[in-house]
């Protein structure tokens, strides 16, 4: 396949950055999108150019590290996949592919296509955990009966990999789906209920402090989420937040 790539190039966080056009040939349809970028970078370095910086780690859709806004969509045109799971068979020979970093004030660009998503870490630190005594007297989680339906919903919420596609996709750069998933996975379980009030209040306060936008329920996050996290979680977080506000 022969492709035209329009890639965001930015030397560092202070640089203004711009879209730059490149041509690439010899791309196989079975390559993953990141493999295509590897080949592209190899070619670019061979010509004496600076390789394009992009995030990646596990390359099997688990870690949430790869990002990229490809042809106007987070993780590209395929559904239920991260960028490492996107394959070049989704594109045609002669296509022009626009590749940009995830855009949000809360996700500043570090270099080229790499953005700083540590705002998510700080939201997690604010309450995305349960306080467990690890002195050796920990109660076995399986000793507490949990309704199958709740366990399934908690597991679904916990499948969020924190990639930030929800923020990148949302027209408001809202982090509601991410925070809602983290709130929900504990809110549905007895182990999480003990700290539920503080958790939702603190995580939402941190989310707002990071400069994410407000959710307007467009539903775009749910569609683009590689793990299919449901909007039901956002409704649950709204309920949790309102009830916690009344208690707190």
């Amino acid at each position: 396949m022969k492709l035209t790539l329009k890639i965001w190039r930015q030397k560092n966080a202070q640089d203004k950055g711009a879209m730059v056009d490149y041509q690439i040939d010899g791309i196989e349809p079975d390559m993953s999108f990141l493999e295509m970028l590897d080949v592209f970078n190899q070619d670019l370095m061979g010509k004496g150019g600076e390789p394009v910086a992009f995030d990646h780690d596990c390359r099997e859709g688990i870690c949430g590290m790869c990002s990229l806004y490809i042809n106007g969509e987070a993780h590209g045109p395929d559904r239920g996949v991260t960028t490492c799971q996107l394959h070049m068979r989704m594109f045609k020979d002669g296509d022009t592919i626009t590749i940009e970093p995830f855009r949000a004030a809360a996700f500043p660009v570090i270099k080229d296509l790499v953005v700083n998503r540590s705002a998510f870490d700080r939201i997690q630190h604010a309450g995305g955990f349960i306080s467990v005594n690890t002195s050796g007297k920990t109660v076995d989680a399986n000793a507490i009966p949990i309704k199958k339906e709740d366990a399934d919903k908690a597991f679904d919420a916990a499948s969020c990999i924190g990639c930030g596609a929800c923020v990148a996709t949302c027209k408001n750069s809202s982090a509601m789906l991410f925070v809602a998933a983290k709130v929900s996975q504990y809110a549905l379980l007895p182990q999480g209920r003990l700290e539920a009030t503080d958790r939702v209040l603190n995580m939402v306060a941190q989310m707002d402090a990071e400069g994410f936008g407000n959710c307007t329920n467009t539903g775009a996050c749910e569609v683009e989420c590689p793990k299919g996290i449901s909007l039901e979680n956002i409704a649950r977080m709204n309920r949790e937040y309102l009830s916690a506000s009344l208690k707190g």
Partner: peptide, 10 residues
């Protein structure tokens, strides 16, 4: 975004 396909998801 230089290119944003909002119609694809909302």
């Amino acid at each position: 975004y230089a290119k944003n396909n909002g119609a694809a998801n909302s």
